[in-house]
Design a protein around this nucleic acid. Structure first.
Length: 643
RNA sequence: GCCAACGUAGCUCAGUAGGUAGAGCAGCUCACUCGUAAUGAGCAGGUCAUCGGUUCGAUUCCGAUCGUUGGCUCCA
């Protein structure tokens, strides 16, 4: 087709080309692609920039359209929902000063400065007002003005937070978005009108410091979620309800794994027999794998003299996380927040040749750290925890290989426990409180980054997120609600080696300083098990299940036989329990199902005569009779394959 | 630590406009002896988180403390 003079070329993502009239809006152009897409479109990308659907096109462009189903679409949609909520809040609480209100990965929030706190009832009122504004079908209009004009505008409305943000921008044009009487400073893009936001739900109220700094005023934040239709919202809320059922705190109680008591202390975990089983299984696996990977185990005390922590720098740099010292015969001792100083003392207890490096020393070391009361969270954030710690001490030339090895080992461990989705971060030098030469930080950070690249895994940079003693690679895994928890960490350290004056004798017969890496693969047993419970929703694979099979007898006749069978399985290293109570089969089955054991074995007359077990697999309704020896063979294989 | 909400039996939750509390499940006892998600009946269980204040009287109202939850800040 010949292009008219006034026509422009629109190139779509699949390289197909569409012609459009100069000055058409993106919305109009999408109409030529398809009416369905036009209806579903939320925002678009013109060349490299995100734009509103109202954007007028005057030259040839590349165009991508985003619906709610894309991350870009969700972002624009939720951001628009946050504006809508702010408008509703302003209508109901004119004295509320809006601060910021972005979209997040799972919804949106808006922060307000308001003297009187929002109540749950207020949320309902705000939701009602949101619905009203949605029905008003206000057009959302983008406007440009100079920064100074915008400052004047927001000053006139006494919106001081907006003014503060504007004053930090360089003096150029800024964009405002207007819907009815409500105007917000915003880069956009947004949906075309309030009627797009059909299903908005406000979820919670929380305090949040202005600009995330605890020195600033605490504002009131309202979290919400929004969808294009009520059905999706309903499905999302149902999903949140489901996620609650996986909560490790709930399952920990139900499965009798652990408890935390006000009387014993917040953030201090008591492991019950079944929880301890689980922990021991993990620890045994962990030890075996460490020996296979060239590690040695060491063991160190829970407390150490002040001098040690002075030398290590913890008293200077980590003090706020350490508990007060205890006096022992006039000397201060501290309970350990980390294991490293002890490990280094073992290194220092004799001389090492370059031939003996690298050293890989591991310890399941229990540490205690002061965590502020507000941050404690079940097993995921506690005050006393056992790290699966290790320190690698090596020659500089061995460092790249050591990082590669430990990274591969780490991924192997996580995958062994069924984790495939994790996020990898490269954390760089913190702005405040850190030690070491800038060049050393640079080199170490590069070494870590290169290793991650060699491993071919995706990662993000966590700017300033490093430890005070060096940069690190952090691997985070998700809980049931999608919150990320840091488990694995591989940390470079050029501080301790120097502070403890570590050395080895190199080929040249002279002393040299070794390099050192701290690493934890699972992170801590507490956090790891917490996430593991949520990951499996309490349905642990056979190799991890604290109880692998519950035997249920049918009637008194086979009681003794069932007991003997349980003994046999026990001697075959099967974690077996038998339920010999004088209850109905239905009752005992139901009870066993609620314990989420992988296998339920029913033993009646038939089974006792044929040496079989009627096996009911977790999640299945039917059972199959299996010869006892066959069952043993099968379950042993499953355990071996870590299924 | 900060903001908000909450704390009633082992668990899940009712309840009391201020007059010391109830249900289901779990537990115990008895009967039933049973084939794959709850057999029936009975009994027992609580200083209503703790400590103060107001009141003739507080589990209920107020305050403090401890703890929990959702966030913020901080972190394995």
């Amino acid at each position: 087709m010949a292009f008219l003079n006034e026509d422009i070329k629109i190139t779509l993502p699949d390289s197909s080309i569409l012609s459009a009239q100069k000055g058409n809006s993106v919305y109009q152009i999408i109409g030529n692609i398809g009416k369905g897409l036009q209806k579903a479109a939320v925002c678009a990308k013109v060349n490299a920039g995100l734009v509103d659907l109202s954007y007028k096109v005057n030259t040839d462009i590349n165009l991508s359209v985003f619906t709610f189903d894309s991350p870009e679409g969700k972002n624009a949609f939720w951001h628009s929902a946050s504006h809508l909520m702010a408008q509703a809040v302003k209508r109901l609480f004119p004295q509320a000063k809006p601060a910021i209100g972005p979209a997040t990965d799972e919804g949106f929030y808006y922060d307000f400065d308001l003297d009187k706190p929002f109540t749950p009832e207020d949320l309902l009122k705000i939701e009602a007002e949101i619905q009203k504004i949605e029905k008003e079908d206000l057009e959302i209009i983008r406007e440009e003005m100079s920064r100074d004009e915008a400052i004047k505008f927001f000053e006139s409305k006494n919106e001081t937070y907006k003014v503060e943000i504007l004053k930090e921008l360089s003096n150029g044009p800024v964009t405002l978005y207007k819907q009815g009487e409500f105007v917000d400073l915003c880069r956009g893009p947004h949906v075309p009108g309030t009627s797009y936001l059909k299903a908005v739900k406000l979820l919670s109220i929380a305090g949040a410091y202005w600009r995330g700094d605890e020195k600033n005023k605490m504002l009131q934040r309202i979290y919400g979620i929004a969808f294009p239709d009520a059905r999706s919202l309903k499905a999302h809320l149902a999903m949140l309800e489901e996620a609650k059922k996986r909560d490790h705190r709930k399952l920990g109680k139900e499965l009798d794994l652990f408890s935390i008591h006000e009387e014993t202390g917040a953030g201090l975990v008591l492991w019950h027999p079944k929880g301890t089983r689980l922990k021991n299984i993990i620890e045994t696996f962990w030890r075996e794998e460490h020996y296979k990977n060239g590690y040695e185990m060491i063991s160190t005390p829970h407390i150490g003299k002040a001098q040690l922590w002075q030398t290590s720098g913890h008293l200077d740099f980590y003090n706020e996380n350490m508990y007060s010292p205890m006096d022992i015969e006039g000397q201060d001792y501290y309970i350990k927040p980390m294991n490293c100083p002890f490990h280094l003392m073992i290194f220092k207890s004799k001389g090492y040749s370059y031939r003996e490096l690298p050293l890989r020393w591991a310890e399941l070391g229990t540490v205690y750290r002061y965590e502020r009361s507000g941050v404690l969270h079940g097993l995921l954030r506690v005050r006393g925890f056992t790290q699966d710690d290790a320190h690698l001490i090596c020659r500089p030339d061995q460092m790249p290989e050591e990082i590669d090895r430990v990274l591969a080992f780490c991924l192997y461990m996580l995958r062994s426990f069924g984790f495939e989705n994790f996020k990898v971060y490269l954390a760089t030098r913190p702005e405040e409180k850190s030690v070491g030469e800038e060049s050393a930080w640079k080199n170490a950070t590069r070494a870590l980054e290169e290793s991650v690249k060699r491993a071919g895994i995706k990662y993000e940079i966590d700017e300033g997120g490093g430890a005070f003693y060096g940069p690190k690679i952090d691997i985070k895994i998700m809980d049931a609600l999608g919150r990320e928890w840091q488990c694995s960490t591989i940390q470079f350290d050029f501080n301790l080696s120097e502070r403890f004056e570590l050395s080895y004798i190199d080929k040249d017969g002279k002393k040299h300083q070794p390099y050192m890496i701290h690493r934890a693969l699972l992170g801590s047993m507490e956090r790891f098990i917490g996430v593991l419970i949520e990951h499996y929703a309490g349905k642990f694979p056979v190799w991890l299940a604290p109880v692998q099979i519950i035997l249920i007898n049918v009637g008194e006749d086979v009681r003794d036989y069932t007991e003997k069978l349980a003994e046999k399985l026990l001697l075959e290293d099967i974690r077996v329990e038998s339920d010999l109570r004088e209850e109905t089969i239905g009752y005992k089955i139901r009870d066993a199902i609620s314990k989420k054991v992988p296998y339920i074995g029913v033993i009646g007359k038939k089974e006792s005569e044929l040496s079989t077990i009627s096996i009911r697999k977790r999640g299945e309704k039917d059972s199959t009779a299996v010869k006892t020896d066959e069952f043993l063979h099968m379950i042993h294989n499953e355990i071996k394959d870590r299924k």
